[in-house]
Design a protein around this nucleic acid. Sequence first.
DNA 1: TGCAATTACTACGATATCGTAATATATACT
DNA 2: AGTATATATTACGATATCGTAGTAATTGCA
Lengths: 151, 151
Amino acid sequence: MDSETRRLYFSFFNEIGIIAQLSRALMEARLPKGLILPHFSVLNHLVRLGDEPTPQRLARAFQVPNTTMTHTLSGLEARGYITMRKNPKDGRSKCVSITEKGRRFREKAIASLDPDIAVLAEQLAAKDIAELAERLGEIRRVLDAYRDKKA
Amino acid sequence: MDSETRRLYFSFFNEIGIIAQLSRALMEARLPKGLILPHFSVLNHLVRLGDEPTPQRLARAFQVPNTTMTHTLSGLEARGYITMRKNPKDGRSKCVSITEKGRRFREKAIASLDPDIAVLAEQLAAKDIAELAERLGEIRRVLDAYRDKKA
DNA sequence: TGCAATTACTACGATATCGTAATATATACT
DNA sequence: AGTATATATTACGATATCGTAGTAATTGCA
């Protein structure tokens, strides 16, 4: 492996990491105290999914250990944004569902980001972002497949 | 703000976040127990910088609170990968420098990633990665400027 | 059916991350 | 010089993340 190749892939993932951190900070600055990105992300996932996944499925979707997801869910449940019931199909697991309160919270959180998006949209053309999102999606799928292969 | 615009920027940052998480996991799987990505990142930064920055400068470079950087540096110092001395120019601060042991560790860590990079390189053309890294760099700079403006 | 292996969840302990505040030094202004 | 303000670091406490292991239920197979 030549050092130029290393440098190239390194710098790519480095940029990814920095952008992830900056955008996360932007998001969390808009969330109420005590709630962080994973809380919001789970609510967002539940709405887009329109289903009642198990904690396990959520943990896999977000690439975090089960214990981390348990912790995140307990925070959401304590605030009344989700409810959990026993899985009628499998006594070992649970079903997670978003509440009305949770939906309202998500709507508000998304709307609160509008000022940030508006400013960024002035400098980052929607067309470019769309194309990048598409290409990043392909890379994400390659990484996902690679992870599964190793698991 | 129309919902399509929201959805677009959301999905972009979502892809970024997922890739960051997957690539971080790949990296940490190669690091020895007790060391995580921030440890490596600081060493890498020190080598590329070729300088002796203060903890403060490092915290800013990585977008983490000073307290987090203090903690990370203490881990690196305990392992003998960095040393810290009083800043001769400013009695309030310190100078962080990488040790020979730290350099060797970084070299080894980078080399240990070669198998992963090799596999990914088969599916992610270097040319595409280079172009994406370039465009992500521009976006990172926009986000950076936006953060500074708000601070 | 009975038992071994697997799977889902979570309690627990260790480390990471972060906010608040204390301490020490530096800078600015009079 | 003297004082107020600002900055750099870090101790401390709270929450997040993660690995290990325990418990309960399911699955697979004899």
